[in-house]
Design a protein around this nucleic acid. Structure first.
Length: 487
RNA sequence: GACAAGGUGGCUGAAUGGCGAAGGCAACGGAUUGCAAACCCGUUUUGUAUGAGUUCGAAUCUCAUCCUUGUCUCCA
């Protein structure tokens, strides 16, 4: 059985055996959100994907330092490197301080991440908290002669870097093709070459967020913060760098160029890219407005939705697709996932009531092995879930008396399922807080219903069942007794 | 236009050369039930965009065609 973890590396375009730089330790960096508006569901998918990866690495016994940044310094608007900082722009619109915007949406982001049951990163650094580091890297690259100062701004010299470097190695692009593909800029551009990108940008007088530097009062370039923060906390070279597919070029390409220029070494061994979540077949994007907010999903308050969905149902839905595949969102697909999710969680709960037998009628070890096999194959969660449903069928058969399981197998299967469902997939019960008073009320109702059924008063019995069902409480009659689930 | 990833059953979504193409959902039949729900068993007939090629054998490899999406400008 293949027990080694294989990861698809964008750099090579192949699945590779994962070998960390330091045995049993993993350094992982993921590009975080820009906090100038609410995170939409597409953003969430990326972070949920990497949360699953983080969780599986932890489960596999690695000590992981997981760094995910908060971009709070803003980015520029247009391709001429001129324009207003996004955060400053939004601040003006809402008549707030830039850092007020940052605070608001950072808090919102963390709350959404909490609802999706993602683990907090080990370090969550901010761009504005690392201005000094970014200035130092800029100085470093200038000293290496791979950047130039122009009118108070500092630009990375892609052409010069490319003499010895290989700009485009990650995204499979060639610089001459890129140049021919760029739109003509007017002669006033500060850049020597359209491919060059800013390391430091001089601020216009109206620009609110700015800091002093050796070159001007200004702000750091778009790609620099990730280089500064990743290398600061994970070293010049680290294991895993993740992010959305849309960041592959130019953002990650620039990170490689910056890192190599500053340290002489390729910064990252494994580049991982999570694919897009689409809505109506199109990528979710802040700029095009084709978005769905998590809150709308949880409340059902959106025309695209037939009902509200619990965050765990959404997470399960995402886990049913592979992280490198495009996933199309639809209310219909989510309804199907909800049913499957309930089926899985019900079986998990039923597992606790199962009585072991002398022997097992099915091979629990191979089931458990199939879980690991799926995850070791580039975190294949859809296959993991399919394999877990084999176990679900087994559990239900045992419950119905059509199969048996031995005590040791029961223990193994239970702990494996718990580990994969809760620890790795990061799911948890989707029930609303079942308080003791509800429990007491339900016991009374079930008692009344039992009495009615004993007296063959089907009208009363069915009335109770149907009205509870309308209220979202399902009554389940079984041989062992009556139970209920709250949805 | 350049580059990249795709097009799989009623829906969703796995599987990269090998017996009957996973799983979830849906539908139908049966079992169960006071009737249902849940669970169990079974079924859904030529289901891998189209056309050619390589091969003993192709969803998978090659070529062509059509279509979709992404990146090339801030984006997860």
């Amino acid at each position: 059985m293949e027990n080694q973890l294989h990861i698809y590396n964008t750099l090579s375009g192949e699945k590779e055996v994962f070998k960390p730089i330091v045995e049993k330790h993993v350094g992982m960096y993921v590009c975080g959100p820009t906090v100038y508006s609410d995170v939409h569901l597409g953003n969430c998918r990326t972070f949920i994907s990497f949360d699953m990866i983080y969780r599986y690495l932890l489960h596999s016994g690695y000590k992981v330092r997981y760094v995910r940044n908060i971009t709070d310094a803003g980015h520029l608007e247009n391709d001429a490197d001129e324009g207003e900082d996004k955060i400053a722009q939004k601040a003006r619109l809402e008549k707030l301080e830039p850092m007020e915007i940052v605070q608001k949406y950072t808090v919102g982001f963390r709350e959404v991440m909490r609802l999706f049951n993602t683990l907090p990163p080990s370090i969550e650094p901010t761009a504005t908290g690392h201005i000094i580091e970014q200035i130092e890297i800029t100085k470093n690259i200038l000293e290496k002669g791979l950047a130039y100062v122009s009118n108070g701004s500092v630009y990375f010299d892609v052409e010069k870097f490319n003499v010895n470097g290989d700009y485009g190695m990650l995204s499979g692009r060639k610089t001459d093709e890129l140049i021919s593909g760029t739109r003509d800029l007017d002669g006033q551009s500060e850049k020597r070459n359209p491919l060059d990108f800013a390391l430091w940008k001089k601020a216009s007088p109206s620009h609110i967020m700015h800091w002093p530097s050796p070159w001007s009062i200004g702000f750091p370039g778009w790609h620099l913060e990730c280089t500064a923060m990743s290398t600061k906390y994970l070293g010049d070279q680290f294991d895993i760098h993740g992010g959305g597919m849309d960041l592959k070029f130019p953002h990650h390409e620039c990170e490689i160029a910056q890192g190599k220029s500053a340290t002489g070494k390729a910064p990252v061994n494994y580049w991982l890219h999570a694919n897009m979540l689409t809505l109506n077949g199109k990528k979710m994007s802040k700029s095009t407005g084709n978005t769905l907010l998590p809150e709308e999903l949880f409340s059902g308050n959106n025309n695209l939705l037939s009902k509200a969905f619990h965050p765990m149902v959404v997470r399960f839905f995402m886990m049913q697709a592979h992280y490198r595949s495009i996933l199309d969102f639809s209310s219909e697909a989510l309804v199907a996932s909800e049913k499957g999710f309930i089926k899985l969680m019900t079986a998990l709960a039923d597992l606790n009531a199962i009585k072991p037998a002398a022997s097992s009628s099915e091979n629990a070890d191979s089931m458990i092995g199939s879980f690991y096999e799926a995850m070791n194959d580039d975190f294949n969660t859809p296959v993991l879930i399919a394999n877990m449903f084999e176990a679900v069928t087994y559990i239900n058969k045992i419950k119905d008396g059509n199969a048996t399981i031995s005590a040791p197998d029961l223990d193994k299967l239970r702990s494996a399922l718990h580990a994969f469902v809760f620890d790795v997939l990061g799911l948890r019960e989707a029930k609303e807080g079942n308080d003791s008073k509800l429990e007491a009320v339900m016991q009374v109702i079930l008692e009344i219903r039992k009495k009615a059924r004993d007296e063959k008063d089907w009208a009363t019995s069915d009335l109770l069942r149907d009205r509870l069902s309308e209220a979202g409480i399902q009554i389940k009659d079984s041989k062992e007794g009556v139970t209920y689930t709250v949805q």
